[in-house]
C-alpha cells in the first residue's frame, strides 16, 4: 500500500469574478517511509494540495488516499492518523512550551508521557525551556516545538507545509537532520519547501509550478535528465556579460547564479569557438567551465520548456 496517492486532482478558487486554478490535474504517489519533498515557489499550489490531503478541503475533481484511506469518505479516520504542521507555525504564543504540547496531545486524546519516546529526540532539545511562552522562542525552537506537537499522537503520515520558511540556515539544517531521524521511526513524511537547495535532502521530490507538477523523481534522477551541458561563466563585468550572452547566437538561456552565470547552450555548441567569440565581445578574462546542473537549473529549464515536463497522468517510475 502506498502512503499517499493523488490522482488527477483539480482545484480552483473563485474570488469575485477571477478564478484561480490552484491545482491543474496533479497526480503523485508517496511510498511508505519515504521523505517526499514538494518543491515550488509561493503560489504553486503546495498548500492547497496539503489541505486536500489533510481533509481540510475538497478537491473539485480527482481522488486521493492517505494511508490507504479515501480523503473524502474516510476523513474522520484520516484525521486520527496524520500529523500536520501548517505553513505558519500554529502555536499559541501565550501558552508555554509544555502547555502547547499538552494541548495538541489532548486534541488526540493522548498525553505527553504516553508518546514521549517518539518526540524525545526533538522535545529534549527544548525541554529546558518548557515554562517559557512559545511567543518568546527563537524561530528554530518554535519549529522544533511545532514538529513535536505534530508528532505527539504518533501519526503514520506527517505533512509539513513549508516548515523551514523564514528560519535561519543553522536551524534549517538541524530541522532536516531531525526529519532524517524521524524517517527511521517508519513515519512517512511529506514536506513542502520553496527552497530548491533543500530538494537534495529528500528521497524523492515533486517540482511544482503554478498548480502543475513539472517532474517527480529522486534528486539525482531529476538532475540526470538535464539534457544539455551546462556552463558556468565568469568575468569582471558580470552585468554586461548577461546582456551580451543573452544576445549571442547558440545560447538558450543565461541567468546569474551567485558568483557565476549559468549558461545553457544549444546542442551543437562549440566551447572553444564560443570562448573566442565572447573574448572578442569585450570580455578578455572570460572563464567558461562545464558544471553539473542543480535542481534549480532543472526547475528553470522545465519552466522554460514545457515539452520536457512530466505528463499529467500517473507517474510509473516507482
Amino acid at each position: 500500500m502506498k502512503a499517499v496517492t493523488v490522482s488527477n486532482i483539480r482545484k480552483s478558487f473563485k474570488n469575485g469574478k477571477a478564478v484561480t486554478e490552484a491545482l491543474r490535474t496533479v497526480s503523485l504517489d508517496v511510498e511508505q517511509g519515504e521523505l517526499f519533498g514538494i518543491i515550488g515557489p509561493d503560489g504553486s499550489g503546495k498548500t492547497t494540495l496539503f489541505r486536500i490531503l489533510t481533509t481540510l478541503m475538497l478537491a473539485d475533481e480527482g481522488t486521493a488516499t492517505v494511508d490507504g484511506l479515501e480523503v473524502v469518505k474516510d476523513f474522520r479516520e484520516i484525521r486520527k492518523r496524520v500529523g500536520y504542521m501548517p505553513g505558519r507555525f500554529s502555536l499559541y504564543p501565550d501558552l508555554s512550551v509544555e502547555e502547547n504540547l499538552t494541548f495538541f496531545a489532548t486534541l488526540f486524546n493522548t498525553s505527553i508521557d504516553e508518546n514521549y519516546d517518539l518526540v524525545k529526540d526533538i522535545y529534549s532539545q527544548i525541554e529546558r525551556f518548557k515554562t517559557r511562552k512559545a511567543g518568546a522562542l527563537s524561530g528554530g525552537m518554535k519549529q522544533k516545538l511545532a514538529l513535536s506537537c505534530a508528532l505527539i499522537h504518533r501519526p503514520t503520515v506527517l505533512f509539513l507545509d513549508e516548515p523551514t520558511t523564514g528560519v535561519d540556515a543553522v536551524s534549517r539544517k538541524e530541522f532536516w537532520e531531525l526529519l532524517r531521524n524521524l524517517q527511521r521511526q517508519k513515519i512517512t513524511i511529506v514536506v513542502s519547501t520553496p527552497y530548491m537547495d533543500e530538494a537534495g535532502l529528500c528521497d524523492r521530490v515533486a517540482l511544482m509550478q503554478q498548480g502543475s507538477i513539472l517532474d517527480i523523481d529522486s534528486p539525482q534522477g531529476i538532475t540526470g535528465k538535464f539534457s544539455r551541458q551546462l556552463w558556468s561563466a565568469r568575468t569582471e563585468k558580470m552585468y554586461d556579460l548577461i546582456l551580451s550572452l543573452r544576445e549571442m547566437q547558440g545560447i538558450v538561456s543565461c541567468y546569474p547564479f551567485g558568483q557565476v552565470h549559468h549558461v545553457v547552450p544549444e546542442k551543437d555548441f562549440n566551447i572553444t569557438q564560443a570562448q573566442d567569440k565572447i573574448r572578442a565581445m569585450g570580455f578578455p578574462d572570460i572563464d567558461l567551465a562545464p558544471i553539473a546542473p542543480t535542481i534549480e537549473d532543472c526547475f528553470m529549464h522545465l519552466m522554460n520548456h514545457p515539452e520536457n515536463r512530466m505528463t499529467a497522468g500517473r507517474n510509473n517510475e516507482h
Partner: peptide, 16 residues
C-alpha cells in the same frame, strides 16, 4: 523569499 527561480534571477539581474 518564495519566488520562482527564474523571477529570482530576473530580480538579481535588476540588482546587477
Amino acid at each position: 523569499g518564495g519566488v520562482d527561480p527564474i523571477t529570482r534571477r530576473e530580480f538579481w539581474t535588476l540588482i546587477y
